[in-house]
Amino acid sequence: MTMTVTGAADDVRTAVPAPVPARRRRRWRHRGAEAAWAYLLIAPTGLGLAVFYLWPVLQTGYFSFTEWGPFGGHEWVGLDNYRTLAADDEVLTALRNTVAYTLLGLLGIPLAVLFAALLNRPRLRGVSVYRALFFLPVVTMPVAVAMVWRWLYNGDYGLINYLLSLAGVDGPHWIADPATALYAMVAVGIWTSLGYNIVIFLAGMQSIPREYYEAASIDGAGALAQFRRITLPLLSPSLFFVSVLSVIGSLQLFDLVYVMGGSGQAARANPAFPRIQTVVHLFYDKAFYTNDRGYAAAIVMALLVLIVVLTAIQFRLQKRWVHYG
């Protein structure tokens, strides 16, 4: 039941060669050969990461201080992009939306815990069938998911509003109405990741020794008390892992917005779009639609700051509530 984070931390520590008594280790005759092999084995991924990931990050940082001309070429403009950005309503709105997605997206966690707890009840029939059904959206292409929901949400011909009309409710144009669009999108996000989170939680719950519950049972603790005193604390590493993933995922939301909100002209003609625009979508629009790459780079640097801050807060807070067994 060691969870990600403990595991990761331990391993980073052990990654530094520990001083092991030399005679107890059998080594190849030439230490040099071992190192050479190691470098060779690491080389493909190492070079690939360097060329396609590390170097580009530095370049993006550099680009954020440049302005791109209509026919390529860029010139250094210092902090201009950042100054524009700080006063740009579009950017601030996108940042606000992104934070809203992130916070609301966390609501999916209790829901997943609930279903995982139900599935974890002993001798329940059909667990694997339920689990498979809940997992279906996880393996479905996000673009396809977004299209299906766009259709379900259709204000005039959508299934959801039809079902509501049976109950006498006149449903809104869910994703075209500025008042509901963001929440409708969050719901799809939660729907999509629910199965994944359930699987993680279920694995976490199943690794909790039965004896704990038995002992609690003997002490006369009810199901709810057991859940609160045993399941939740011992599940806290999984909860932490899922919440970190959920936050990072929400902060980079793109696919759903691209398909359900549109892009380019379609997005511009969508009255709800300013309410659902995310930072990554705005970045895409600036970098590849209006070709304002310097400004796009600055926007994505702002996103990096947001991610670092929110993740740091999470790691800081984890000390208060995550228990490692």
Binding site: R150, Y153, N154, G155, D156, Y157, G158, H173, I175, A176, D177, G262, A269, N270, P271, A272
Partner: peptide, 10 residues
């Protein structure tokens, strides 16, 4: 004419 919301949906 349908409103913008309807034309965004369809």
């Amino acid at each position: 004419s349908p409103d913008l919301k309807t034309m965004t949906d369809t």
